[in-house]
Structures are given as structure tokens and as C-alpha cells.
């Protein structure tokens, strides 16, 4: 089991706010890696830096042994990193199926000429895109909503749809930003099953989550951010007992 993602001294500041300070961490192939911390700790900023939405001030990422040099978001996706967003970002006026079909863009190739002439190769590709998209909707458990507009889906289903769309890009690392936010206990339980299924299918997972039970139950290792700094990184049982971590959470939810 080698290292899949390595972050080396990643820093990012917004004006006076130092959102990330020299963050270094490494995620092993096949692991579920948790990223936790109080509000404003810099977790989402780390995702944005990783996926190329922000440029880092300093530091670098290495994915699968190769440096992630060209950092345009679509190139990061091509390299095999997909993500979901904390504040769900679906294509609201497209159907659930179309949302996932957009996720196939990266792995397909039809251009204008193919689209207009609709030759045999293009038709076959379109069909394959749709078949795969339906499979993924089924995988995340919302096959029945394929033809509904994304904005008409229930909240939990929207989160699942975002995961399906991310999976459509064939990622090796899937970064989930608070996937359980706003879910009830049943939904969270089935989300947990979904994440475990993903791991079984060979996808490495980077998980930001506030739901402590979910994080502690799922993750192999957990890193804790506080004011942009990594204050702990270990297996969940140890992190839970870490003095700095408890202080960061003011003896609150982790106790």
C-alpha cells in the first residue's frame, strides 16, 4: 500500500487570515482519511487548494508519486481527484442523470463534428455515457430519481448525486466535504455504508466531517486542523485523547 497523496508545506492566506499554515500530510492508497477541526479551521480551504480552485502561496501536492504541477481544476480531475462541495453545487436545472453524464465529460471525447454528424462512434459513446451514469445513480441509491431536475431532489439525494457525479470522473481519490451535513440518523447510516462500499471498490477517501461518530467510526486515520495548522494526526482513538485536540474543541464534542 503506497502513498497516494502527499501534501508538502501547503500554505494559503486571505489578506490577514492565514487559512493554511505549512500543512503536510500523506494519505495511503485505499484508506479513509478524516480531516476535522472547528469552524473556520481551514478544511475547505485545503480541499480548494488540492483541487486547484485556489492557488497555494507555498507548498505542493504529489499524487500517485507524481507532482501535481499544472494546477487547473480540470487537470486535477483528470489526474484522478474528484470532490464534492460543502454547500452542494449541482447543475440545478439539469436532471440527475444529466448531472452524472457531465461527470463523464473528462473520460469521453466527442467534439462538435461528432455531435452534429452523430456518427456510429459518437452514438456508441453517448450510449456508454448514459449507461454508466445510470449505473452510478443506482450505485449511490437514487436510480429512481434519474429524470428529476437536480434542484427538485431532496437534500440527502442531492448529496448522493454529487457523489455520483464525482465518481463519474473515475477518481482514485474522492474528497468529500461534509457529506453528512444536514442528514438525519438514517441517512447518515446509509451514507456510511456508501463510503465503505467505495473503499471496498478501491477508492481512497478524504473526508471532512463534523459528525464525530461518523468520522471516528469510518476513518483509518484523522488529521485535526485548528486555525490553519495541523495539530494532530493519528488513528481516531488516539486523536480523541489528544490534549491539543480537546483544547481546540474546548472540551466539547470530542469528549
Amino acid at each position: 500500500m503506497g502513498v497516494l497523496l502527499r501534501a508538502q508545506g501547503v500554505s494559503k492566506s486571505f489578506g490577514g487570515v492565514q487559512a493554511l499554515r505549512e500543512i503536510s500530510l500523506s494519505i495511503d492508497q485505499g484508506e479513509i482519511y478524516g480531516l476535522i477541526g472547528p469552524n473556520g479551521a481551514g478544511k475547505t480551504t485545503f480541499f480548494n487548494a488540492l483541487t486547484g480552485l485556489y492557488s497555494c502561496d507555498r507548498g505542493e501536492f504529489e499524487f500517485d508519486g507524481k507532482p501535481l504541477k499544472v494546477r487547473a481544476p480540470h487537470e486535477v480531475a483528470r489526474a484522478g481527484i474528484a470532490r464534492t462541495f460543502q454547500n452542494i453545487r449541482l447543475f440545478a436545472n439539469m436532471t440527475a442523470l444529466e448531472n452524472v453524464m457531465v461527470g463523464r465529460h473528462l473520460r469521453t471525447r466527442a467534439g462538435v463534428i461528432g455531435a452534429v454528424l452523430r456518427d456510429r462512434a459518437t452514438r456508441a459513446e453517448e450510449q456508454a455515457i448514459e449507461v454508466r451514469a445510470r449505473e452510478l445513480l443506482d450505485y449511490v441509491g437514487i436510480a429512481g430519481r434519474a429524470n428529476d431536475l437536480a434542484r427538485h431532489l431532496a437534500y440527502g439525494d442531492q448529496r448522493r448525486l454529487e457523489i455520483a457525479r464525482a465518481l463519474a470522473t473515475e477518481p482514485r481519490l474522492l474528497a468529500l466535504d461534509e457529506p453528512a451535513a444536514g442528514m438525519n440518523a438514517t441517512e447518515t447510516a446509509s451514507l456510511r455504508d456508501l463510503i465503505e462500499a467505495l473503499r471496498r471498490d478501491g477508492i481512497t477517501i478524504l473526508l471532512i466531517e463534523h459528525d464525530v461518530r461518523l468520522v471516528m467510526g469510518l476513518c483509518d486515520r484523522v488529521a485535526v486542523l485548528d486555525y490553519g495548522e495541523k495539530i494532530a494526526e493519528d488513528v481516531p482513538e488516539k486523536v480523541q485523547k489528544d490534549a491539543k485536540v480537546i483544547e481546540a474543541y474546548l472540551g466539547g464534542s470530542l469528549a
Binding site: T51, A77, L106, A110, E126, T169
Partner: peptide, 24 residues
């Protein structure tokens, strides 16, 4: 088509379109 969907995706949410691997 694949191209048309990419256009609409950009209209709907450019950031998400990028994250989905579309060279916007």
C-alpha cells in the same frame, strides 16, 4: 451532446463544471 451538456454545466455552475473536469 457532450459539448452541449458542458455548455449548460458552465451556465449552471462554473466552479462545479471545472471540478468535474471540464476545461471551461
Amino acid at each position: 451532446s457532450r459539448i452541449g451538456r458542458a455548455w449548460v454545466a458552465i451556465r449552471e455552475d462554473e466552479v462545479a463544471a471545472k471540478a468535474c473536469g471540464i476545461d471551461t
